[in-house]
Design a binder for these strands. Structure first.
Lengths: 129, 129
DNA sequence: GTAATTGCAAATAATTTGCTGGGTG
DNA sequence: CACCCAGCAAATTATTTGCAATTAC
């Protein structure tokens, strides 16, 4: 049972993740952390994101993309991926447990949950047209 | 408008993808293609998967994983990811268009569709316990 | 015949890891 | 003051790409 320390770096990463409405990649986060801690290294960003993901404080999301993205909101919710600007946002609307039931009835596997991500054009990109 | 040729390599990859019920990664596919075409290269597998994905003959799927997986069934459907053996299978059950409607009503973005993947324990892993 | 495609190997790109000195609890 | 963690750079791993030879149409 190793004890976790709240370093300046780890706190900054967590604060930024909780304040952003989109869900940045490790490199996007690195750029923002560097404004506050100029000598921070990318390795530190990655190591902290893994620690925070393991402890359940942040969520790792993987949406049709070669980079992982991170979400400071640890509860279960759906995501929206803008096909134009490629950003990922949280969605309002509750998690549909009945989807699990519906799928369980038609398949031999034991379903414990699901992830869903929606795609389209985000409100900001819509305005630009 | 470049013309596409059906090479032995491309056909073999497509046949394997259509015959498998799970959804292999490029390396898993490489191992199987190599049984039929011993000198095939991994680059050829990747290049063909990209061609077939672009033409819509196969689907690329990305489920909480660092590897892409490929699905020989090009129509829209849900996937199941076994948390034990890590394989990915197709699910029976129709695509829920009303989810898009429900989410559209509660959010400012223009939703054009969604992906959903379920997780749990697959029927084969269940038997082993 | 000709242009798309292959095999091979080297290049990319995202993420992880080894090491050593520093800072948290 | 123990030992977790930062910074730096080198290693790893999945995927892409350049090139010369091959092959489908």
């Amino acid at each position: 049972m190793t004890q976790k320390r709240m370093t300046k770096q780890r706190k900054t990463i967590l604060d930024i993740l909780k304040s952003r409405k989109d869900h940045p990649t490790a490199s996007e986060l690195y750029l923002e952390v560097r404004e506050k801690i100029p000598h921070v290294s990318l390795g530190t960003i990655y190591r902290n994101l893994n620690v925070l993901t393991d402890s359940g404080e942040v969520q790792e999301i993987n949406i049709n993309n070669k980079f992982k993205r991170y979400d400071g909101n640890p509860r279960q919710h759906y995501h929206f991926n803008c096909l134009e600007c490629k950003r990922v946002f949280d969605l309002n609307g509750s998690y549909q447990e009945d989807l699990d039931t519906m799928i369980s009835e038609k398949n031999p596997h034991q379903i414990s949950g699901h992830n869903a991500d929606f795609f389209g054009t985000c409100s900001q990109c819509l305005e630009k047209t």
